[in-house]
Simulated scan of single mutants.
Amino acid sequence: MISVKNLTKEYKKFKAVDNISLAAKPGEITILLGPNGAGKSTTIKSIAGLLKFEGEITIWEYPNKTVDAKKIFGYIPETPALYELLTPWEHAEFIAKAYKLDEDWKEKIKAIFERLEIYDKKDKYVRELSKGMTQKLSISLALLTEPKAVLFDEPLVGLDPKAINEVLKIFEELKRDGRSVLVSTHIIDTINEVWDRAYILNKGRITSEVTKARLEGRDLKTMFFELTEGAEE
């Protein structure tokens, strides 16, 4: 699971995140919601190990910045972090060598590329790919290592409806496999059918934790706006 306990991050005297705790449990799709400036990006980057912070973050009980944690963690950033002069296939090969994957990685990535309809672009330079294609590539590379915990930051932005539907199916498959799935998004309507647990973040604090089972027919989007009313959208 992804566990965040008492996370605090200050920039000089400004607290971007103020003592928050959350958990993305195995076999659940957990979403993180919040208006601009709520602290979502700081939280995501802290979990991914990109920022110094106060508190404790673990990935299946391993401290998030350790090699053991990184071996079982997949991260899809909002802006794909790719090498413009490498091809999608070369990216996959790099990941396979870095993680010392078995030789069957080629069949695995081929299947993922075909599913997300980028296999025909496998030999093009990344700089030649569209925003949607690079997003699909970023998702593909994170899934290649078969992580036990996956963090998606705005994964649906730039994708066409067919690709969005496929990514939602991937979320549910990861859930069925008992993996931890944490999704930071502002596209509430699109993800409304698949989420299990939601954390609403506002002004650096968790204002609400809710499960779909306990929502009792209330609309998550309406609840979100009620709790963040007056915040910057």
Rank of each mutant, 00 (worst) to 15 (best):
V126A: 08
V126D: 06
V126M: 13
R127K: 15
S130T: 14
M133I: 14
T134P: 00
T134E: 12
T134W: 02
T134K: 12
T134M: 12
Q135I: 05
K136F: 05
L137W: 09
L137M: 04
S138K: 00
S138M: 07
S138R: 04
S138N: 11
S138W: 13
I139L: 12
I139Q: 04
S140Y: 08
L141Y: 07
L141H: 05
L141I: 05
A142G: 04
A142T: 11
T145I: 15
E146Q: 15
E146L: 11
E146S: 13
P147C: 11
P147N: 10
P147R: 10
K148H: 09
A149Y: 04
V150L: 14
L151R: 12
L151Q: 03
F152Q: 12
F152S: 06
D153S: 00
D153M: 08
D153W: 04
E154S: 05
E154L: 02
P155W: 12
P155I: 01
P155F: 12
L156C: 10
L156W: 13
L156S: 12
V157P: 04
V157M: 08
G158N: 10
G158D: 09
P161S: 01
P161F: 03
P161W: 04
P161E: 06
A163C: 01
I164H: 03
N165F: 09
N165R: 15
L168V: 11
K169E: 14
K169N: 07
F171C: 07
F171A: 06
F171L: 02
E172D: 11
L174M: 09
L174A: 01
L174F: 01
K175H: 05
K175D: 08
D177H: 02
D177L: 06
G178P: 01
G178H: 06
G178T: 06
G178I: 03
R179A: 00
S180Q: 05
V181N: 07
V181M: 03
V181S: 00
L182A: 03
V183Q: 00
T185K: 01
T185C: 02
T185W: 06
H186Q: 14
I188Y: 09
I188A: 04
I188W: 04
D189E: 15
D189H: 05
T190Y: 08
I191F: 02
N192F: 09
E193G: 00
W195R: 11
W195I: 10
W195Q: 03
D196H: 03
R197C: 09
R197V: 15
R197T: 15
R197M: 13
A198N: 07
Y199W: 03
Y199G: 03
Y199R: 07
Y199H: 04
I200P: 09
L201R: 01
L201V: 07
L201G: 09
L201A: 10
G204P: 03
T207C: 11
E209S: 08
V210Q: 05
A213L: 15
L215V: 10
L215N: 08
L215P: 11
E216I: 10
G217H: 00
G217R: 07
D219I: 10
D219H: 09
D219Y: 01
D219Q: 01
D219L: 11
L220W: 13
L220R: 04
K221G: 08
K221F: 11
T222A: 13
T222F: 07
M223I: 13
F224R: 02
F225Q: 07
E226H: 00
E226S: 06
L227R: 14
L227K: 15
